[in-house]
């Protein structure tokens, strides 16, 4: 025995032994150019199932298995993360919707008199509606790039420095995870979210805009 090793993953520490390949050949009678298992990495991991099926047709009687079959916990973990992402995105979008409704409702109610005056002197409801929606879009267009930049910089910084979870390292080892998390940003998610934010902003502006056109000039003007 050469030594005992320790990684961040306690599961693998308990399961795996590393040995010289020649020692193993001697012990297991596997021929010199033989192997009992070949691992394949595919570029598009969401196509694993199709690729595995195709290989299976070619390679029977050999057994082709995907990572999901070999390690179902990994698949569970993956889908768990995906669901978590969706839940978080929904929560953030809801917060965004309420934030925008609140901001624009304030902007409308604060300017009741002004809107009343505009309608009194001949600005029609359609124009008032469009005005409120446009205002929201401008705010979103100013806010979105700032938010994008901040999000981008934060991710880059955290990716470089890593989020230190060593306080929970014991627990994380049980799951076979490292104690430093390095967030990554992919362009697709980034753009999807930005587009969703702008669309959300426009949708959220509809309620305040409706509120604005329901104002009656006489009543709006009476407000001090």
């Amino acid at each position: 025995m050469g030594g005992i090793y320790k990684t961040v993953n306690r599961l693998s520490d308990e399961l795996y032994v590393y040995a010289q390949i020649d020692d193993l050949r001697r012990l297991t009678d596997v021929p010199f150019d033989g192997a009992h298992e070949i691992a394949m990495l595919v570029d598009k991991f969401d196509q694993t199932d199709t690729i595995a099926a195709a290989l299976q047709r070619e390679l029977s009687p050999w057994k082709v298995e995907t990572y999901k079959q070999i390690s179902p916990d990994l698949e569970l973990f993956n889908s768990q993360i995906r669901i978590n992402m969706i839940i978080m995105t929904v929560i953030f979008m809801l917060a965004l919707i309420f934030g925008i409704i609140n901001t624009m409702l304030m902007a409308v109610l604060e300017r009741m008199k002004e809107l009343g005056m505009l309608m009194a002197v001949g600005m029609n409801k359609f124009k008032v509606f469009i005005m409120v929606v446009l205002e929201t879009i401008f705010i979103a267009l100013i806010g979105a790039p700032i938010g994008m930049l901040l999000g981008y910089l934060t991710t880059i910084y955290l990716n470089r420095v890593g989020i230190d979870l060593s306080r929970w390292s014991k627990a994380l080892e049980e799951f076979g995870m490292s104690d430093t998390v390095r967030p990554n940003l992919n362009a697709e998610t980034f753009i999807t979210i930005v587009v969703a934010v702008v669309i959300t902003a426009i949708l959220a502006s509809i309620y305040p805009a409706l509120k604005a056109i329901r104002l009656k000039p006489v009543e709006a003007l009476r407000k001090i």
């Binding site: 008199k113 002004e114 005056m117 002197v121 001949g122 600005m123 029609n124 409801k125 003007l221």
Partner: peptide, 24 residues
């Protein structure tokens, strides 16, 4: 109707309000 009335005010009636109501 309401929208015609808005248009009518725009072209026929000038308003001066007690509290000026200029757009700040």
């Amino acid at each position: 109707n309401d929208n015609q009335l808005i248009d009518f005010r725009k072209t026929h009636i000038g308003f001066v309000f007690q509290s000026y109501n200029l757009i700040p």
